[in-house]
Amino acid sequence: MAQFSGLTAVILNCSLQHEAKESHTRLLLNRVAGIMRTEGVEVEIIHMLEHRVGFGMVTDTTSLGDERDDWPGIHAKIMDADILVIGTPIWLGVKSSVATLAIERLYAYSGETNEHGQYLYYGKVGGCVVTGNEDGVKACSMETLYALSHIGYTIPPQADCGWLGEIGPGPSYGDTPDGADVPAGFDSEFTNKNATIMTWNLMHTAKMLKEQGGFPVGGNVAETWRDYTNAEDQDPHAD
Rank of each mutant, 00 (worst) to 15 (best):
M1A: 15
F4V: 08
G6I: 12
V10K: 04
C14F: 06
L27K: 12
A33L: 08
I35K: 07
T38V: 05
V41N: 02
V41Q: 02
V43S: 08
E44G: 01
M48W: 09
R52F: 12
G54M: 05
G56W: 06
M57F: 12
V58K: 00
D60V: 13
D60N: 14
T62G: 09
D66V: 11
D66P: 13
D70I: 08
W71I: 07
W71A: 07
P72R: 02
P72I: 10
G73R: 08
I78V: 15
A81V: 07
L84A: 08
L84F: 06
I86C: 04
V94N: 09
S97G: 15
T100V: 11
L101D: 00
L101W: 01
A102R: 01
A102G: 09
A102I: 09
S110W: 07
Q118C: 07
Y119P: 01
Y121R: 01
G123C: 07
V130F: 02
V130K: 01
T131Y: 01
T131L: 02
G132R: 00
N133Y: 00
E134P: 03
E134M: 04
D135G: 00
G136T: 04
K138T: 10
K138R: 01
C140A: 14
S141L: 04
E143I: 00
S149Y: 02
S149F: 01
H150K: 06
P156D: 04
P157R: 10
Q158R: 03
A159K: 00
C161R: 03
G162M: 05
L164W: 01
G165V: 03
E166D: 05
D175S: 14
G179T: 09
P183N: 04
G185D: 07
F186I: 06
S188V: 04
T191V: 09
A195S: 15
T196M: 09
M203Q: 10
G214E: 14
P216D: 12
V217A: 08
G218Q: 08
G219R: 11
N220F: 07
V221Q: 15
A222G: 14
A222R: 09
E223P: 12
W225D: 12
D227Y: 09
T229F: 14
N230G: 13
E232G: 15
Q234D: 11
H237M: 15
